[in-house]
Design a protein around this nucleic acid. Structure first.
Lengths: 342, 342
DNA sequence: TTGTACGCGTTATCAT
DNA sequence: ATGATAACGCGTACAA
């Protein structure tokens, strides 16, 4: 504490240590051109005084806040939460904090909104969540505003420094091949909304698997939802009214898959005896509905952690191994899949 | 833009408007003692230049950041997300941003962690989520550090300026009375973990209802979980092994209620024919499991919005009606309740 | 009602 | 290797 009883500042440290405040600043910022003796002397005073640099002052001087932003546009709740967790894990123990910024993808003012936000908050960096992460204009905006960014998504749509991707297409191909291996030939798809790269990749994986197995895919076996439970119910209703009825359905996320199970149950179709279902994400809902859902585990927490590390990694003391940019999803087999009846 | 091509500052505005920057500052901060002409002249320049005050500089000068913190300790995911949504709704259009800070309730360093966080980030205010909001030391710490705070919780444990509460006890009493009205006499309780005020309040409401109906509550009809699906399954298993078996179960939150339904189904007990179930929260899972869950709707989003308004309300232009401090929960009747069999 | 001078705590420039 | 001095952009005391 200094004379005024307030928190010690860089000036207090400088005075007590008998050096200039610039030297203290150099110690804090690990400048290489410092006498070892000076460094140690100053570090001791810092410890003794319990000095902590003021982030507001640093932000003003550096024109850059020590904040990592999470920019997202209304994907499902569990995903946002998992991403937050991953980011916070990476930020833990650092001086960075996380701010959340939801945006409206469909608003024409979206880019202006984000510009205003980034200019005002002067974020150190941002993590861009799908589907808004697929917007190239947004990425360019970040660069223009000198704000680091990392995009998360289902395909590599930027260079590794700016991207953390999962291999959705291959993961879905494996999942659907598993269905084929169980003997299913009439397999329906509840895909995500148009314009989502994840929806596109997962559909491609679906088609890959059927092509491999020489199974034709009539247009009628594809229904579209928008990643919500309710649209999953609606899409499944269409597919289950078909004749012949599909014996298995792959849904592009767990929420819609839960809707599929719900729709099946409402019309007395047993899962998995009469209908096999596979989802994607492995959110808690997958394990909690009945029957527990076979699904593709999407390592979203790890991906978010990696994304945040890419942003603040340079600030970490030790140079760790570079964060991976491609994450592999794996099939989690639970009870919603069985061989087709008959 | 000014000469250097950078963003305009208060100095640019002052220069162009031909006034001192203090006058500009007065316009920004809506000082009452300003000539109307001066105000309008400056406001026009502000618009023309597209001037936006720099939050970092303000933070340094005011020793206070324009950030609202959300401090929580691992309650369920959906609740955290709903609270975030409510806070963001209140902050929308203001200069405030939201930062998330998870803490570890059981860590002895928790208070020091929070102190360090608040001292460093100089938050404008924080929203405290249950169960950590029940910690009085934490509230005192906020006051000591001159950080506004609002506690959210299931009972009024602070004055209205610092509290947004729900009437859990009364809400549960009504829910369980509904069960009684359906003819149930053997009603089990899956309560939340000890030390949670919400768990205590909901249990009290449960007991109120039974007392009103002159129904005895043997200790064996109470099982404890910790608000997760898995503990709901475990607690329900205990209750369903009883003989005679309860014909209805109230669970203190939806996740555990979903676990109860899950456990019942695993042993071939039909819901609601053989077992009625009521949950609490009305999270999405309640509507998505089968059968859709009758539950108590907890207006958490509105509560969070009100909490944030209490924090930043003074900053809003118009003096609106004061934010309410007590929120009323209501019973949502779906399909998981029926009269007892036989 | 408006302006002057200075403080907030840090980093950057350019000396030495 | 280290230091004096000036930014950074805004708010406040106090004077006018």
């Amino acid at each position: 504490m200094n004379a005024r009883g307030a928190k010690p500042t860089i000036n207090d440290v400088a005075r007590v240590a008998g050096v200039s405040k610039k030297t203290v600043s150099r110690v804090i910022n690990r400048s290489p051109l410092l006498h070892q003796d000076t460094r140690e002397k100053v570090e001791k005073v810092i410890r003794d005084l319990g000095y902590v640099p003021n982030p507001q002052a640093r932000a003003l001087a550096l024109r850059r806040n020590f904040l990592i932003g999470l920019i997202h546009d209304n994907p499902n709740a569990q995903m946002v939460l998992n991403v937050q967790q991953g980011i916070l894990e990476a930020l833990h123990g650092t001086e960075f904090a996380m701010v959340i910024r939801p945006v409206d993808r469909n608003s024409s003012a979206m880019l202006d909104d984000v510009r205003h936000f980034l200019e005002q908050q002067r974020l150190y960096g941002v993590v861009l969540l799908p589907p808004i992460s697929e917007n190239d204009e947004l990425a360019r905006l970040c660069e223009e505003l000198d704000c680091k960014y990392v995009r998360m998504g289902s395909a590599e749509l930027d260079d590794p420094d700016h991207m953390v991707a999962s291999n959705d297409r291959e993961a879905v191909r494996e999942a659907v091949s598993y269905l084929v291996g169980q003997g299913h030939k009439l397999i329906g798809l509840v895909e995500g909304p148009g314009g989502f790269r994840s929806a596109q990749e997962r559909r491609l994986g679906f088609e890959d698997a059927l092509r491999e197995a020489d199974i034709k895919l009539p247009r009628s076996l594809i229904a579209t939802g928008n990643y919500t439970f309710e649209t999953g119910v609606a899409a499944a209703s269409k597919l289950l009214d078909l004749s012949p009825r599909p014996t298995a359905i792959f849904a592009s996320n767990d929420e819609m898959a839960a809707g599929v199970v719900h729709a099946a149950r409402s019309r007395g179709i047993d899962v998995p005896a009469d209908l096999s279902v596979i989802g994607f994400d492995d959110t808690p809902i997958a394990a909690h509905i009945w029957p527990p859902l076979t699904t593709v585990r999407w390592p979203i927490v790890s991906m978010a952690r990696a994304a945040a590390f890419k942003l603040v990694g340079g600030e970490k003391r030790e140079a760790e191994t570079p964060e991976p940019s491609l994450f592999i999803s794996s099939l989690i087999r639970r009870s919603s899949v069985a061989p087709p009846a008959g």
